[in-house]
Each structure stands twice: as structure tokens, then as C-alpha cells.
């Protein structure tokens, strides 16, 4: 990632060939996060190592045989596994890797949101496909989960867009030059993190692939299909964590280090929080969370949006 010597206009996109590198960048960041996660877990268990765990896992899934269950729905099933990583990459195109994103979309925030929502379909399809009860229940659990996390998530994103009065991610960063949005919209930031975990069925929101369903939506996937599904989940988590940086944490702003390094550092910090939360909380089931989400998080995020819109009006009036 070359840091441009001259600061480009905030609306410009990176050179086209960055689109080729983007998936690799995402994979590298997700891989490091997975390695650190495994190392933390190994340390908690009093074992050395853990850093090679992602390599072992990827290898054994590459070596593993693929399988198809009895009277399965292979199209939906395979599509579910493929859509997850592809959606993560597509969501990441609007995230500035430094000062500029791969694709500078005027509707960047909406695009990010739209790509994330594909996960909703992907997990359900992966759960439905294999004609297996546990897998099916896992898929439906994720649909219920989506109903709970999606609205607070959208309100949180929109609040950031409202603060900048733009749907372009570059403008949102530019609007944070004086003050990071996390300061004026802390509720939206926290809700964004919570819903990012829920979207990547991560951490306490892993009921769709939980052990009580023997792996739920992922329970019948083996070999490279499993690799795509679980890898796609990591990519999605990484993309969501990276998006928190331009939306709330001032993008690449920071002293000493170049912008890309700050984006990386902040992304890894957000990922660390998400990884920590997984160890900290038991699985949160949607029959409980829906109520909290709708009766607490939605009103809170709406109130947050109201506060921000008043701030925007006041600024406009000045």
C-alpha cells in the first residue's frame, strides 16, 4: 500500500488495479486476526502457539473431501457458501484503504449495507441446502437474527451518513476532520459493533452455527465448501470492522503513521474488541435479543439520529 505523497482529493478512488489486490488485503487482515484469536485462546488454555491454527485449518479443508447430502438442494447450498466471501469483498470496495477506497461510490454507505445483507441470504441458503434438520434450524435462526440486528445496524450507519450529510464514505471521513463521529454518536458506534458481530454470526451472536446444533448452518459443509463459508465469515467480520473506521473513527487520520497504517491499526483494534466479546459473553439467542433490539436499540439509535440531525441543523445555521 503506497502512501501517496500528495494528499489526493477525498473523493478519488485508488488506481483500478487495487481492485485486484483488495481480496488479498482482506484475506491477509482476516488471517492475522484469526491467528491472533487462536493464539489468545491457546494462551488462555495454557498452551504455547496457536498462530499456525489458520494455516492448519485451511489446509485440512483443502485436503478434505467434498460431500453432498441425501436429496440436497445443491444450487442454494453451494451458492450460500460462495456468496459469503464474495459479498464481503464487494462490501469492502467502498472502504478507504488509507485515504482512498477501491471504488468511490456516491452511494457508498448504501452499497456497503446492501452487500452485507447478502449474508442474510447466504446463511439461510447454506442452512436450507443440505436437507438436514440441524442445518435448517441454524439457517432459520439467522433469519430471525437478521430481523433483530438489521434495523439498529442501518440506523447506526445512517447516523454517520447524516453527520456528514453524504452517502459517500470519503465525505464521511472528511466530515470527521475536527471531531471523530464516535464522540458525537457513541450509541451508533456501539450498536454498529454489536450488529457487525451479529451480521457475521460472530461472537455472542453465533447461534446460527452454534455447537448445540452441531454446527448449525455449517454442519454439513466439508472440504472447500466449508472453507468458503467459514472463511467468508471471517472476511465479513473483517470488512465490517474495517467499515467502523471510516464511519466512526476518523478513517486514516492520526499522527506520525501514514493513513493506511492508521486504517490498519484501527481495524485490528475493532477486530480485537469483537474477538474479545466472543470470549466474554455466552451465545445470545434471538428469542431474547429481538425484544432488546427492538425496544432498546432501535429507539436509542433513533434518538441518536435525532441528536445528530439537530447538531447538523445547528452547524448549518452557523
Amino acid at each position: 500500500m503506497d502512501d501517496p505523497v500528495t494528499v489526493p482529493p477525498p473523493t478519488a478512488a485508488l488506481a483500478w488495479w487495487w481492485a485486484l489486490l483488495l481480496p488479498l488485503v482482506l484475506i491477509v487482515v482476516a488471517w492475522s486476526a484469526a491467528a491472533v484469536d487462536a493464539a489468545v485462546e491457546a494462551r488462555a488454555a495454557g498452551r504455547p502457539g496457536g498462530l499456525t491454527v489458520p494455516a492448519h485449518e485451511v489446509t485440512r479443508l483443502l485436503v478434505g473431501q467434498r460431500r453432498r447430502t441425501l436429496a440436497a438442494d445443491p444450487v442454494l447450498w453451494r451458492a450460500g457458501a460462495v456468496v459469503l466471501p464474495v459479498a464481503a469483498v464487494l462490501a469492502a470496495v467502498v472502504i478507504p484503504l488509507g485515504t482512498r477506497p477501491v471504488a468511490d461510490l456516491g452511494v457508498g454507505v448504501v452499497w456497503f449495507n446492501a452487500m452485507e445483507v447478502l449474508a442474510w441470504a447466504a446463511v439461510w441458503m447454506a442452512g436450507w441446502g443440505p436437507n438436514s434438520v440441524l442445518s435448517l434450524v441454524g439457517g432459520y435462526r439467522f433469519v430471525a437474527q437478521g430481523l433483530a440486528y438489521e434495523l439498529p445496524h442501518m440506523f447506526a450507519i445512517i447516523t454517520a451518513a447524516l453527520g456528514a450529510q453524504s452517502l459517500r464514505v470519503g465525505d464521511i471521513i472528511a466530515a470527521q476532520q475536527d471531531l471523530w463521529f464516535v464522540v458525537i454518536m457513541p450509541v451508533a458506534f456501539v450498536v454498529f459493533l454489536v450488529s457487525a458481530a451479529a451480521m457475521a454470526f460472530w461472537g455472542p451472536f453465533d447461534a446460527p452455527v452454534a455447537g448445540d446444533l452441531a454446527g448449525g448452518a455449517a454442519s454439513e459443509l466439508s472440504g472447500v465448501d466449508r472453507l468458503l463459508f467459514l472463511g467468508g465469515r471471517w472476511l465479513l467480520l473483517t470488512a465490517a470492522a474495517a467499515m467502523a473506521v471510516p464511519l466512526f473513527l476518523g478513517g486514516g487520520a492520526g499522527p506520525l503513521l501514514p493513513a493506511w497504517a492508521w486504517v490498519l491499526v484501527k481495524t485490528l483494534l475493532v477486530l480485537a474488541v469483537l474477538v474479545w466479546a466472543r470470549r466474554r459473553f455466552p451465545t445470545i439467542r434471538m428469542d431474547r435479543w429481538s425484544e432488546i433490539s427492538w425496544m432498546v436499540l432501535v429507539p436509542l439509535t433513533v434518538a441518536q439520529a435525532l441528536v445528530v440531525s439537530i447538531v447538523v441543523l445547528a452547524q448549518g445555521g452557523l
Binding site: 473431501q65 460431500r67 447430502t69 472440504g223
Partner: peptide, 13 residues
Amino acid sequence: ATGRPVSEVAPFA
């Protein structure tokens, strides 16, 4: 991969 994909595997419960 070790072996070609198998089909008609019984789902697990």
C-alpha cells in the same frame, strides 16, 4: 482434495 466429492450422504442429526 482426498477423493472426489461423495453424494447421497445421510444428513447428521
